[in-house]
Design a protein around this nucleic acid. Sequence first.
DNA 1: GCCGTAGGACTACCA
DNA 2: ACTGGTAGTCCTACGGCG
Length: 783
Amino acid sequence: MRALFIDAEPVEQEGRAGVKLWLKSGSLVELYDWGFRPYFYADTDSKKDAAAIGRLDVKGAKVVGVEKAERWVWGKHKELLKVYCTKPSEVPVISRAVRDGLEIGCYEFETPFKYRYMIDKGLWPMDWVHYEADGDELVSIERATGEPGSLRALAFDIEVHNPAGSTDPARDPVIMVSWADEKGAGVLSTKPNRGVSKVFSDEAALLTGFCDMLRQKDIELLLGYNSDLYDLPYMKERSRRLRIDFPVGRDGLTVRKRGGGLVVSKVGGRVHIDLYRVATFLDRIGAMNLPRYKLEDVYAELAGKPKRDIKKADIWKVWDKGDIDDLAAYSRDDAECTWFIGKQWVPLEIALSRASGLPLFEAVRATTGSMVEQLLMRHAAGRSEITPNRPGFGEVTERAAETFVGAYVKTPPPGIYSNVAVFDFRSLYPSIIIAHNIDPATLNCDCCKKDGHVSPAGHRFCVKRQGVIPETLKELIDARAKLKASMKKMDPKSTQWAIADNHQWALKIIANSFYGYLGFSRSRWYSREAAESVTAWGRQYIQQTIEKVERAGYSVLYADTDSIFLLLGERKKEDAIALLTELNKGLPEVMMLELEGFYPRAVFVSKKAEEKGAKKKYAMIDEGGKIKIKGFELVRRDWAKIARKTQRRVLEAILKAGSAHKAVEIVRNVIADIKAGKVPLDDMVIYTQLRKEVYTAKGPHTAVVEKAAKRGVKIPVGAVIPYVITKKGKTISDKAELADWAKDYDPDYYIDHQVLPAVLKIMKELGYTETDLKVAGRQARLT
DNA sequence: GCCGTAGGACTACCA
DNA sequence: ACTGGTAGTCCTACGGCG
């Protein structure tokens, strides 16, 4: 039988231990594999040790088999013992006895059992398998090929009666559950209304009705927004209090708290995707940058239009009034927006799951680090290499304390320039890792003492045996290149193209994370020497390239990590392209310098306190009139919209119209509007994320949190706080007030601390001073 | 007690 | 809970002044 492999879970029944597999062929199939034994490795080849390990009995947990195994351990070929246990839960117990009791080192004793199973069986989630079964018992399974499969999905959202403002499952009932899927949308509620598609006698019936619907529709993929933390735990708690079952899954619902306030809600037998998790993931990897990631923010960004909105605080009022037309429509809209977002992001998550080997549920909640790790574990196993153990607490602390030098950034001379060309290295760090075989296990090998790759940081890497990291990375990069090539032959509007695009994106995301993973203190494959060699080679390549560009007669304006900005001057684009070709001849095979683009005009500014140019801050306009802005206040959410908007207009006036005069007019008008109190409060809102539980220093955003706490509103860690600097108070922190509570704004603050600083650094390059901008009617010095 | 400033804490950016 | 490099804000402590 052919099926899509979804997930696996360890199970224990009647003393037997095995694995439950979730497959999809038509609909979901549950199968059991009772024939797979958990194991770990012991670092010894002595018969005496083998015998001692074989005799172990820790409170009834016994070793059921010991066999020899040849594996690579940190670049050395070794003979180890593979120690089998009966149940997965016995692995930690027995391996501890081996380590602490017999003082024999162990490996892979903390590999979660389901990963152990998937890795050893060669199963990749969201990919196809061929299997044979006898009843519900698996007989055989192996990986097959095919396009990624799809799952039957449904998005949902709940509304809660909230007269107290906040909601509390001890008190406030669920009043609506809305849903949306391929076929349409609907609202389940306990009050009848035109907008309500199904009415239930009470809340218990409503919750049960929702579960019935999932069962009837045979939903495999459940989509929510912040449903890990809110909807599912809320419904579960309400059900508990109502003393009813809540069979939202085929196999229970577990709500688990992870470290750092993270909550994960696992729906057994369906894949639950919390799209808020996807939003924060995309934010972290820099694929998205919004001030906030509420459902309406994300929807507006993706759909290009705003979402219907009700003030959350008013939900109960509308409900109590009995006229719930609006509420039903709003609730339904929430589900539809969630569905819309899911349509865009689920394919990427499926691609990430396939590319990393993490089951979809885990992939959605994974960091790029754990994706890299999963992939490395799979590749390591494939080449008989041991997966290094996780570092202990002490080790992590030590690693975190040892810092290393990163990338090179050139200070740009501030000014406004014409005809800039930008070159950049394609995947600089991944290319370096592959070109120089950088891996903790190839570091200081015994075989290449004379002829190894020696990094500018002074570390040597093997030239004979490729490391698991370079090997895995090369596979990703080659696969991506192949995909990109095949995409050229596809119709860009086809589903096939969209699938390939998500896949290539997933491969890129993972490939870009390898360097960070090498330097990550909790990494299994951590190596400071390896990480600092990557950056050292990176600095060497960029600096040598800068020298060559300068020797060719160009002046290099700016450079950061892997990019070079040069002034074309009197030369033509063709000259720059010829130079590029020349530069590439001197680079290793896998490395490639590319033309990023030509820019007719560019702005670099000086640092606020010094005359020197500011790094990581520039704006350029390309030949198509498209503006690229980096680092400026206007790309930062912790600046008020009025400052960001004004700075953008000023930059546009200079880059597009080339008019400083216009820029001055803009600034003067904005200042006048602020003084006159004409600017809407919305434009004064500053967003700052609450990143810590406890602060040593006071700041506007911590002050806002304190004030909210006094009113009984708890702002959780991770929240992005919107606040306004009001007239009331002495210091800025005193004046800061939660946006919803702010009645006015302090014009002086917004002029002197927001608009002027943002705009002045640009105007300074054109010869203007603060007074030129503040005092109306004065003649501009330059135009 | 007031003023100016150096330095620390903090956030969000670039690559 | 992937890295280092960077700009910039706000607050506090501190020294000088009178």
